[in-house]
C-alpha cells in the first residue's frame, strides 16, 4: 500500500519536472521581477513605483508586458543577445499576441536596446523603436537624468502600443478571447490526474503547496505549509496581489479585500517555487473547509477555464516587488527592435 502511494505521489512530480526550465547562457539572462527593474539604482523610487503601476495596469488592459531593465554593466557585451535571451527566458507578452517589449540599458557600457515581441513589430518597427529612444531617452541620458529618460521612454512606448490598438492593427486581449476558448485537451489529462491526486493528498496533510485557503477580509492567519519552516530565514514569500492579501516573512498573512490571488513560496537555495491559492470572500460560514477537495477542484476548474496559462518562470517578486509583475505570459520575439548608445 505504501509503495502504491509513493508511486502515485511521484507521478505529479514527474509531470512537473517536464516544465522545469534548463538554465542556459546564464550570463546573458537578466533578472526580471517587476516592470521596471532598476538594478543600477539610478531611478527615483516614486517614479519607479509610478511606472510599475502603469505597467501592471497596461498589462491588465491589453495583455502587453512592457519591461525595462536598467543594469550597471552587462556580463555579456552583446546587448542584443542579452535582450533576446532574457525575452526568450521569461517569454514576455501574451502567448497568442506576442506583445511583449523588453528595454535594456547598461549605464556603464552606455548601451541601450529595445527588443520587440513578434506581435508588436507592426506598430513598434525597428525604426519607430529607435526613434522613441533617440527622442525620449537619449537627450535625458546624455545629461545623466536617467529617471526622466526612462519615464519618458516608458510612457511613450506604452502610448505607441496603445495607438496601434486604437488603429486596429493590433489585437487586444478582449478581441482575442474568442479564439482562446479552444482548450488543448491533451494538457488537461495530466492536470486532471494531478487534480485527483491532489484531492487525495489534501486528506493526508494540512496545507499542501498548490492548495487553496479561504479567508475573510481583515482576517489574519499564520501560514503553515508542508515543507516550509518560516522560522528559518531562507524562505521567500510574496503575494501576487498585495491589495488582496499581504504577507510577512514570518508566514503571517492578512486578507484585505475580496478577491482571489496566490502566495508564492521559494527556498533561497532552490529554484523550485510553490504557491498557495488564496480566496478572500465575505460572509463565509466557516473557514474550516479550507482543504475541502471538492471546493479545491471547483476552484481549479474555474481557474483553468477563466485564465490563460501563466508561466512563473523566474518572475518571482523579490524585495520591493510585492504584487507587481508575476512572470511572462508565453510570448516570443524573433530579434526585432533597435538600440545603440547615447
Amino acid at each position: 500500500m505504501m509503495k502504491i502511494q509513493n508511486i502515485l505521489l511521484s507521478i505529479p512530480l514527474f509531470l512537473f519536472s517536464w516544465s522545469t526550465v534548463t538554465i542556459q547562457a546564464q550570463e546573458s539572462i537578466l533578472s526580471i521581477d517587476n516592470y521596471i527593474n532598476d538594478h543600477a539604482d539610478v531611478i527615483d523610487d516614486d517614479v519607479e513605483q509610478e511606472l510599475n503601476e502603469m505597467g501592471a495596469r497596461f498589462e491588465k488592459e491589453t495583455g502587453s508586458q512592457v519591461i525595462f531593465n536598467i543594469e550597471t554593466r552587462l556580463d555579456n557585451p552583446d546587448i542584443r543577445k542579452v535582450a533576446y535571451e532574457t525575452f526568450k527566458h521569461y517569454e514576455l507578452g501574451d502567448e497568442d499576441l506576442d506583445n511583449g517589449v523588453l528595454f535594456v540599458a547598461s549605464i556603464e557600457d552606455r548601451l541601450r536596446y529595445m527588443e520587440v515581441g513578434r506581435g508588436l513589430e507592426g506598430v513598434l518597427t525597428d525604426i519607430t523603436s529607435q526613434h522613441l529612444q533617440t527622442d525620449y531617452l537619449v537627450p535625458s541620458f546624455q545629461e545623466e537624468n536617467y529617471t526622466e529618460g526612462i519615464r519618458s521612454l516608458y510612457i511613450h512606448t506604452i502610448k505607441t502600443i496603445e495607438s496601434g490598438i486604437e488603429e486596429g492593427s493590433l489585437k487586444t486581449s478582449e478581441n482575442q478571447n474568442a479564439s482562446e476558448t479552444a482548450i488543448d485537451w491533451t494538457i488537461l489529462i495530466p492536470i486532471g490526474l494531478i487534480l485527483v491526486l491532489m484531492a487525495f493528498v489534501a486528506y493526508q496533510r494540512r496545507i499542501q503547496p498548490s492548495s487553496t485557503i479561504i479567508l475573510q477580509p481583515g482576517e489574519t492567519r499564520e501560514l503553515r505549509v508542508a515543507g516550509y519552516d518560516f522560522s528559518e530565514e531562507n524562505i521567500l514569500i510574496s503575494s501576487q496581489d498585495s491589495r488582496i492579501v499581504s504577507v510577512e516573512p514570518s508566514g503571517k498573512i492578512q486578507a484585505h479585500k475580496v478577491g482571489r490571488t496566490k502566495i508564492f513560496l521559494q527556498r533561497l537555495e532552490s529554484s523550485h517555487k510553490d504557491y498557495i491559492n488564496v480566496v478572500v470572500r465575505k460572509n463565509h460560514a466557516s473557514s474550516s473547509q479550507e482543504d475541502d477537495p471538492v471546493l479545491e477542484a471547483l476552484l481549479w476548474g474555474s481557474l483553468l477555464s477563466s485564465g490563460r496559462k501563466r508561466r512563473f518562470m523566474g518572475g518571482f517578486p523579490h524585495s520591493g516587488g510585492w504584487g507587481g509583475f508575476h512572470g511572462g505570459g508565453g510570448g516570443s520575439s524573433r530579434g526585432g527592435g533597435a538600440g545603440g548608445s547615447w
Binding site: Y84, D126, Q130, R334
Partner: peptide, 18 residues
C-alpha cells in the same frame, strides 16, 4: 542613413536569431 542602419541592424538581428 541612420534609419537605414537601424533597419539593416534589425534585419541582421532577426536573421541571426533565425
Amino acid at each position: 542613413m541612420s534609419d537605414f542602419m537601424t533597419s539593416v541592424e534589425g534585419i541582421e538581428n532577426r536573421l541571426s536569431v533565425a
